[in-house]
Design a protein around this nucleic acid. Sequence first.
DNA 1: ATGGATATATCCATTGCGGATATATTAGGG
DNA 2: CCCTAATATATCCGCAATGGATATATCCAT
Lengths: 110, 110
Amino acid sequence: MLPLTPAVFHILLALANGEKHGYGIMQEVESFTQGQVKMGPGTLYGSVKRMLTAGLIEESEERPDPALDDSRRRYYRLSSLGRRVLHAEAQRLSDLVTAARARHLLNEMP
Amino acid sequence: MLPLTPAVFHILLALANGEKHGYGIMQEVESFTQGQVKMGPGTLYGSVKRMLTAGLIEESEERPDPALDDSRRRYYRLSSLGRRVLHAEAQRLSDLVTAARARHLLNEMP
DNA sequence: ATGGATATATCCATTGCGGATATATTAGGG
DNA sequence: CCCTAATATATCCGCAATGGATATATCCAT
């Protein structure tokens, strides 16, 4: 299942903080990457559909305070599989970063 | 230009240690990832061709000691652009790892 | 000399990306 | 109240990347 595509990894990472709706994921990814990664709707909703099929995420039926809600929204959360996959991918990336650091390709420890 | 595909990143990382030939890159990626990432010839040579076009790598004319050489081999090295791109991608990944760690998705510092 | 590993190359089906487009709803200003 | 912009989801489609299959040639050890 690994490596994950950047889109899938960003979506999982955004959901690790708690459930979110599609558009919210898009915004969080853009703000997190300071606008460097702009996920268009095709990528977002296409990825979400594939991730639902793969069992990485689940649609949540819980709605927040109706005053803050929007009836159009569909909320998603990590599945336990999704959390495990995210963990494994983060570990894989961490190993890559360590290797890059060993090759003097990075500034010192964050 | 970022994010890089896993194949391109692995190739750049393998070349950061010094110039290598295609097959050697394949072996290094497989051993580095403990067999988790197996880069087939289609991916390797296809990626190399694209990376030459993009100016990330250059073919090297220098041959090692003829006793250790193999006339079929084609050696590649990082270009200065390739090194800068690799640096930027490593930094990007490092930021992702930091974010993952903040979300308690990783074991402590390596 | 023969076979297996080494080495490069191309083809192609499948998949993922991402811009364009469409449509509906919500919120806010005039 | 109305109109617009932002929000929100969804699909289509061209393009690029992946990776297995295939092909071919060379090197090395037995």
